[in-house]
């Protein structure tokens, strides 16, 4: 009998409220079952009209439900920025090369520029705007970025912070070398890298303590 070592989506469920993520993302620990699935015997028409039709897309973003009507081509990034008005998530390359658009989807850090929004039906998305508590108190990672001057122009910062939270949650912030390696998908042209590493160490340790 082959032994099941791990399953595809097990990582999210280990998180706790105090371990960096807001509680709401815990809900979606498995791939959502989608009702809009295609049946082979009932293919939709293949005309241009169909390809251009707007798709109804629902997702939770920062603990709120959003119902979008989107072009299939719209990236998750553009849906957040242009359709949800959440401009904290940044476009730096639009091709998955800079990390500025990093958000958490179902608790995992991903590049929102390389994900079509329609592929995120039913998902739970967290952006930089969703980190601070309702009373305005900052997430420990946000405070650590301030304390360690982990940015200059600030443009890559939302992506750095979301990626840093993902990095710690994934268990890849054990050493400074690990942090450097696992944060290398986030370019900082101002080159605040040593300060970013220091910030992540601070936030990681604070979170462990609490």
């Amino acid at each position: 009998m082959p032994k099941v070592i791990s399953t595809g989506t097990s990582t999210v469920s280990k998180l706790s409220r105090r371990s960096f993520m807001s509680g709401s993302v815990l809900a979606a620990a498995t791939m959502p079952i989608i009702t809009r699935s295609a049946k082979a015997e009932e293919p939709p028409s293949d005309g241009q009209d169909n390809a251009r039709a707007l798709a109804a897309v629902s997702m939770r973003v920062n603990r709120q439900s959003y119902n979008f009507a989107l072009d299939n081509r719209t990236s998750l990034l553009d849906a957040l920025r242009d359709h949800a008005g959440l401009t904290g998530t940044k476009k730096g390359c639009d091709h998955g090369q800079c990390g500025a658009c990093t958000v958490l989807v179902d608790g995992r850090r991903v590049l929102s520029c390389l994900s079509f929004a329609v592929m995120n039906e039913g998902r739970d998305v967290t952006t930089i705007e969703g980190l601070a508590a309702a009373d305005g108190s900052l997430h420990p990672m946000q405070q650590a970025f301030i304390d360690n001057d982990a940015f200059q122009c600030g443009y890559c910062t939302p992506g750095q912070i979301m990626s840093a939270i993902g990095c710690v949650n994934e268990g890849h912030a054990g050493s400074e070398d690990d942090i450097r390696e696992y944060m290398s998908g986030n370019l900082c042209r101002c080159a605040a890298y040593p300060n970013i590493v220091a910030a992540i160490v601070q936030a990681r340790d604070e979170t462990r303590r609490s």
């Binding site: 904290g88 998530t89 952006t127 705007e129 900052l138 301030i146 001057d149 600030g154």
Partner: peptide, 21 residues
């Protein structure tokens, strides 16, 4: 002293040109 716009930058509230409504 920390940057006076630090909070805006870590919360996604600093408005860069293409963010402005």
């Amino acid at each position: 002293v920390p940057r006076i716009d630090a909070r805006l930058k870590v919360t996604g509230q600093a408005g860069y040109s293409a963010d402005l409504a």
